[in-house]
Design a protein around this nucleic acid. Structure first.
Length: 945
RNA sequence: GCCAGAGUGGCGGAAUUGGCAGACGCGCUGGAUUCAAAAUCCAGUGCCCGCAAGGGUGUGUGGGUUCGAGUCCCACCUCUGGUACCA
């Protein structure tokens, strides 16, 4: 019985494609190139998730479509295979992470191949391949060899870094330190999450509320030497170059906000007495604003220099370098206690918490407000971050919410210097009286010579005046911080860096890069992967022949930190272009031929970090002449999340049903009864137990009890994870592909539905039966498939379908493309004769979506080759048009009749025909027509009285 | 709190961007086929009134613009993501 049997035809065609190397991409494009890239997966032990094939199917459809349109398509796949789970598995089982990683990659490969994606598998790579991370290390060395020239706004070789004469005078060591301090890859102290109980350093994601995610042990923040990448140097370009990218405005905005550029001024507040202020001011007007911060001032950054007159106190961060110097003896005890307490808190703890109450302590010191010449107190508070701006602020409580809150709490003065005016929604009287805060713009008051000017005017004038008098300077700041690039982990790329050891066997502080010819630096074999109880990387336990190196009689110790998982994914798109090259990360000529990536599809969770990091590396490679494009990813599409099946949940308190409207969340996030506070129990309900009522669902049996109805994220704990293997086994890969595309728009979040899968399977069955006599014993075409010309109507359906499917694919509107093909099938199923001239092109339309079924039907139609490079069907615009169309007649905006007219019927005849329509005439009788609107091809509308 | 996106039948979702709301699929109802069932095929299916013809009503809520609004404007409500004192 030749029924549609995907279990048979899908493996058959997958083998055919593999054997014939159908999707092998030419080394260089032979026609217009398209580079379509999926965000490659982390090969977890759990296997493929139904979320993966969503984006992969979308790009696969585009690629198959482009190939049929004669383009040269690069469509590769690989694995982002370094990562924590493999290392944790290694710790548990004491097997090398490479073993489990390779096993997982094999499983992922099997699952991906099972879905029939047209990847060029000959280009597959994993970030853990030694020959891959050889080049990741090489790129790190490029970063290490690059400094950022602010004047030219680009990265340049470190050899070209100008060394100031005073540094040269101090000798070679000073010069080398100077260079190290300017490299894009440099070392610095940074806080890490050290968990003594687990004996390991944790990633931020592994720390929840100051406790370890596993085991709930306390986590300390301790400073540790770290590799940093100077991404901040590129902040301006990373922001500016977003403009020309074909990304959704939402993602661009997210990146822009992450970079967080702001403009304002740096201002120095004199740390002396009122009497000394005048002479300090005078000296400043001759020396100008110094680049390095002198000892006698507190420098702040502000975006509102216009409010300087309203600065009534100052705040420095607990980690500010001047804390010790500023603290008066009378305050020392409380300051030390405060700063110590702050150091124990994570950034999270500092800012989180329900109360979010501000805390702080007075230093006892004062600074002079440069506008008023009066002293104002200097406080320490953790609402000021050490890592942003100068780590110190001028507080203007009248015009900043945070400062206002703090001022109220500690009884500090609030002086209004901006009049909100009467049009603002705020309470103007309260603001002027210092009883309320106003953060908007308005007119300056209590601001000396600036009174009466607008906020914008004062900002500019004040900045100019500060600049002239050497007390301040225009300044730009970014929220973006330098990228903490090292991890205290085993399973990552080793740094190609050596630390020189002195006679005593201790590091001298001199570092050198591993010679490019000595790359790759492979990971050593470890006897065990257990944590060793020190906040030091596991590579410290490496065999000595790996750890120690001797060059030119000097001893070196290898860097034992490893790179973060982001490293490998920062440049994989370049390696796919030339994956087996062993003399360069990618041939420059091929890079020029294939870059940039024309379509990049992946989850929105990478909207900020991965895309920002990859763009940064790309720009460095660009500056150093290794790539030809300024940006790597021209068009970006974020697929939406796939949720589990919709679930209905009712709630009970003490066995009694309770309506969701009578429930609320308590402080712990638990659902409790509003009236009694009693905890509610969730009860999972079947579809048959609930009924729609109003805009929600209720229990069928007790209709006053409202229940929850929603889809949840798929998760192991909830038990709603859908396994692609099962779907393929039960419905076939083509059905899975088709269903994921039919669910809704690619970018939307959508719930899974098994009956939806069986719906599209049903469609594929219908398509099969449209061609195949399934009651025959042998596989053969139906007699209805004939070599005769299509009827006019058949031809119109065909051409309309081609037109619609073509446009929908171009717009990546796959759900509607599938709907159009279903309409085609609905129509031709009813036709007794099915001309080849219609049935052949339809198979080609279906091919990008359901490639296995399409290939099978294509070969049944007598073709011997794969349809993968068959020209995409063309449509005739004229054939899609009808000779006659139906036009509605509206009276006062309501449809009161219909008119069948020739398609090209003009305005005048339409009106005549409408007036002649008996029903319309009847309705218009005795009424006065005020206005007649006729839109040819659309409608006739009468407005009557 | 702030930012972004979204609210359309029982459900997933369509709607040349201001012109016949509900394409397509699921579900449901009825019919054909069958000894019967599955499968398949055909028809119907927003809600309300009505035996019917027909009429009314309808895109989260309230207002507005327009001959005409799911689509544009204003205000609000709900949900989903993101974010967290960046001066």
């Amino acid at each position: 019985m030749p029924r549609y049997n995907p279990a048979e035809i899908e493996p058959k065609w997958q083998q055919y494609w593999e054997l014939n190397q159908t999707f092998k991409t030419p080394i260089r494009p032979k026609s217009e190139k398209v580079y379509a890239l999926d965000m490659f997966p982390y090969p977890s032990g759990a296997g493929l998730h139904v979320g993966h094939p969503e984006g992969y199917t979308a790009t696969d459809i585009m690629c198959r479509f482009w190939r049929m349109r004669g383009k040269s398509v690069l469509h590769p796949m690989g694995f982002d295979a370094f990562g924590l789970p493999a290392e944790e598995h290694a710790i548990k089982t004491n097997t090398p992470p490479r073993v489990s990683t390779e096993k997982n990659i094999a499983e992922f490969t099997r699952q991906l191949k099972m879905l029939g994606f047209s990847y060029d598998w000959s280009r597959v790579l994993a970030t853990t391949d030694v020959e891959y991370f050889r080049w990741t290390q090489w790129i790190f060395l490029v970063l290490f060899d690059t400094w950022f020239d602010e004047d030219q706004n680009r990265g340049r070789p470190i050899a070209e870094l100008p060394i100031p004469p005073d540094v040269t005078a101090q000798g070679g060591l000073a010069e080398s330190e100077y260079r190290d301090a300017h490299r894009l890859a440099y070392q610095g102290e940074a806080l890490v999450n050290w968990c003594p109980a687990l004996g390991t350093v944790l990633a931020n994601e592994e720390v929840i509320d100051g406790k370890s995610e596993r085991g709930n042990h306390p986590v300390q923040r301790i400073p540790l030497r770290q590799w940093m990448l100077r991404i901040t140097a590129y902040a301006d370009r990373l922001l500016g170059d977003l403009e020309h990218l074909d990304w959704s405005p939402g993602i661009k905005k997210l990146q822009a906000e992450w970079i967080g550029r702001s403009t304002g001024a740096e201002v120095d507040f004199f740390l002396g007495s009122e009497e000394e202020f005048a002479s300090w001011k005078a000296s400043r007007s001759t020396t100008g604003f110094p680049k390095l911060i002198p000892q006698d001032v507190l420098r702040v950054y502000t975006t509102r220099p216009d409010t300087l007159f309203g600065a009534t106190y100052m705040v420095i961060a607990p980690e500010h370098p001047l804390v010790q110097a500023l603290t008066k003896d009378t305050q020392r005890e409380s300051v030390e206690a405060y700063c110590q307490a702050a150091s124990y808190k994570s950034d999270r703890e500092r800012t989180e918490g329900d109360t979010k109450k501000k805390s702080g302590v007075f230093t006892g010191a004062h600074a002079i407000n440069p506008t008023t010449g009066r002293p104002i107190p200097i406080w320490i508070a953790d609402y000021v971050l050490a890592s942003y701006g100068t780590g110190a602020i001028m507080a203007v409580p009248a015009h900043d919410d945070r400062d206002f809150e703090f001022a109220v709490q500690y009884g500090l003065p609030v002086n209004a210097v901006v009049d909100p005016g009467t049009s603002s929604a705020c309470d103007r009287e309260a603001v002027l009286a210092g009883k309320a805060c106003f953060v908007g713009t308005g007119t300056a008051i209590n601001s000396g010579c600036f009174d009466g000017q607008s906020t914008e005017q004062v900002k500019a004038a004040m900045t100019a005046q500060l600049s002239d008098s050497g007390q301040g300077k225009e300044a730009v700041n970014y929220k973006l911080r330098d990228w903490l690039f090292s991890r205290q982990r085993f399973w990552g790329e080793p740094f190609p860096i050596l630390h020189e050891l002195g006679e005593d066997g201790r590091p001298t502080g001199v570092v050198r890069a591993v010679d490019v010819s000595d790359l790759p630096v492979d990971l050593p074999h470890l006897d065990d992967y257990q944590p060793h109880g020190k906040p030091e990387p596991p590579l410290g336990k490496s065999p000595h022949d790996w750890l120690y190196v001797e060059i030119d009689g000097k001893r070196f110790r290898r860097e034992t930190n490893t790179m973060p998982q982001w490293a490998g994914s920062c440049w994989y798109y370049l390696r796919f272009i030339d994956p087996r090259n062993n003399s360069a990360f990618c041939d420059p000529e091929l890079e020029k031929a294939w870059m940039p990536v024309d379509l990049y599809v992946g989850g929105a969770e990478h909207a900020v970090l991965h895309l920002l990091y990859a763009r940064f590396w790309h720009k460095v490679l660009y500056d150093r002449g290794h790539v030809s494009t300024v940006e790597p990813f021209q068009k970006l599409v974020n697929q939406g999340m796939i949720l589990g099946e919709v679930e209905y949940t009712g709630y009970q308190v003490n066995g009694q049903w309770i309506s969701t409207v009578d429930l609320e969340k308590d402080e712990l996030g638990q659902l409790v009864c509003k009236a009694t506070g009693a905890m509610a129990q969730a009860v999972v309900l079947g579809e048959s137990e609930v009924t729609k009522k109003g805009d929600g669902f209720v229990l069928s049996a007790e209709q006053e009890v409202r229940v929850d109805s929603r889809a949840h994220k798929m998760s192991k704990s909830r038990g709603n994870v859908v396994n692609p293997d099962e779907i393929v086994r039960e419905y076939g890969a083509d059905s899975l592909r088709l269903y994921e595309m039919f669910m809704g728009p690619l970018e939307a979040t959508k719930p899974w539905s098994m009956s939806g899968v069986s719906g599209v399977r049903n469609f594929l069955d219908r398509v099969w039966r449209m061609y195949v006599d399934y009651r025959d014993d042998d596989l053969r075409l139906l007699d209805a498939i004939v070599d005769q010309s299509p009827t006019a109507e058949q031809n119109q359906v065909l051409h309309r379908t081609i037109a619609a499917v073509t446009h929908d694919i171009e717009a990546m509107s796959f759900n509607t493309a599938i709907a159009r093909m279903m309409e085609f099938a609905n129509f031709f199923t009813k036709e007794q004769t099915r001309p080849r001239a219609a049935m052949s092109p339809f198979v080609l339309l279906l091919a990008p979506f359901a490639p296995h079924l399409a290939e099978e039907l294509w070969s049944l139609l007598g073709n011997t080759d794969s349809l993968a490079y068959e020209p995409w069907p063309k449509y005739d615009e004229a054939a899609t048009k009808s000779a006659e169309i139906e036009i509605p007649i509206q009276i006062n905006g309501k449809v009161r009749g219909r008119l069948t007219v020739p398609a090209e019927c003009d305005q005048a005849s339409l009106e005549t025909l409408a007036l002649a329509d008996p029903k319309t005439a009847e309705l218009l009788a005795g009424k006065q027509v005020i206005k007649t609107i006729v839109v040819p091809g659309r409608l006739v509308s009468f407005v009557v009285k």
